[in-house]
């Protein structure tokens, strides 16, 4: 594009750079501040944003070690951050695996098999997913209390119950995988069927190996979605050793027991891995965004 650039153009570019840097500074301020706070001694010190004295006390506590203060007082870790992180990872991994399994088979059915009410089911699934789960919390609580009366390991205050609750959120993933299956020509499976494969074998041995990349994408998306989930987890889990990070982190910032520095270390420790996974998966997430999904 041959556009004549003049003096005003250069001014505008400088102005744009300046404006962008101001905005970037505002955007990054909370993130950089929390790193600096995690390295600053004490939970109340304010004033210097760049720590004059580096202290690892908050990191020690976040990693589960006790810390000995200068006056000899031993400080125990206030919360089991690593246990919470483990709970979060465990729940997110298991539920994501189940979500992938459930949505893959369903996507195969929708992409390849012919049956009545197919488009009705598909559309009502999308419509259902628009209702935020936070609104149905009362019912979810009541349902899991009832389930817990029959199957104790799926009730309130169990990780099993939370995992099962997360499997409900499969509609978007079914659509993603279905879209991918539809790009694979049906002739490949038909050949397998001509050679005597059943429809299950055609799915399991032929189609599935070709869909591994999309399954990994769905796994990562489901993992991120469940590890940051707060509303259901906050209703189903209440006892400290059971909590996930998303539910537990808020306990650091109670007015009566304000642990700002300890929170900062725990936040960086738990937030950084999730952020990195998110950035690595950015490409797929962005392509999903334009189809209407909003992150929670």
């Amino acid at each position: 594009m041959a556009v004549v650039t003049g003096k005003s153009q250069r001014w505008r570019i400088t102005l744009a750079h300046l404006g962008l840097w101001v905005l970037i500074a505002i955007t990054l301020f909370p993130l950089l501040a929390v790193v600096s706070i995690s390295l600053r001694p004490g939970n109340f010190a304010t004033g210097s944003l760049i720590p004059t004295e580096i202290s690892l006390e908050h990191w020690k506590l976040a990693l589960g070690f006790s810390h000995i203060q200068a006056d000899g007082v031993v400080v125990q870790p206030p919360f089991p951050v690593l246990l919470w992180l483990w709970n979060s990872i465990k729940i997110a991994t298991i539920s994501s695996l189940l979500i992938v399994a459930v949505s893959t088979t369903a996507a195969y059915g929708f992409a390849r098999l012919k049956f009545r009410f197919k488009s009705t089911i598909l559309n009502s699934m999308l419509l259902l997913q628009m209702f935020p789960v936070a609104v149905a919390l009362v019912a979810i609580y009541a349902i899991f209390e009832a389930i817990g009366g029959v199957i104790p390991w799926l009730g309130i205050e169990t990780h099993g119950g939370l995992i099962v609750a997360y499997i409900g959120g499969v509609a978007m993933h079914i659509w993603t995988i279905k879209g991918y299956f539809e790009t694979i020509p049906t002739e490949i499976e038909e050949c397998a069927k001509v050679d005597g494969a059943t429809s299950w074998q055609a799915f399991y041995k032929v189609l599935l190996p070709m869909a591994v990349p999309i399954l990994m994408v769905v796994f990562v998306l489901a993992f991120i979605g469940t590890i940051i989930e707060y509303p259901i987890a906050s209703v189903l889990l209440r006892e400290e050793p059971n909590l996930t990070l998303a539910v537990g982190s808020k306990y650091y910032l109670y007015e009566q027991r304000y642990l700002w520095g300890d929170f900062a270390a725990a936040a960086v420790l738990s937030g950084l891995p999730i952020t990195l996974v998110f950035l690595a998966a950015q490409r797929w997430i962005v392509s999903g965004l334009t189809s209407g999904g909003v992150k929670g």
């Binding site: 970037i24 909370p30 940051i228 982190s249 910032l253």
Partner: peptide, 29 residues
Amino acid sequence: RTLLFLPYAVPGFISILVFKGLFNQNFGE
């Protein structure tokens, strides 16, 4: 673009709580 995308990549429950601390009346930055 990458730097400006960051708020979206940080888990919501963490950035919201970070703001809760930063906005604290007496101890907030």
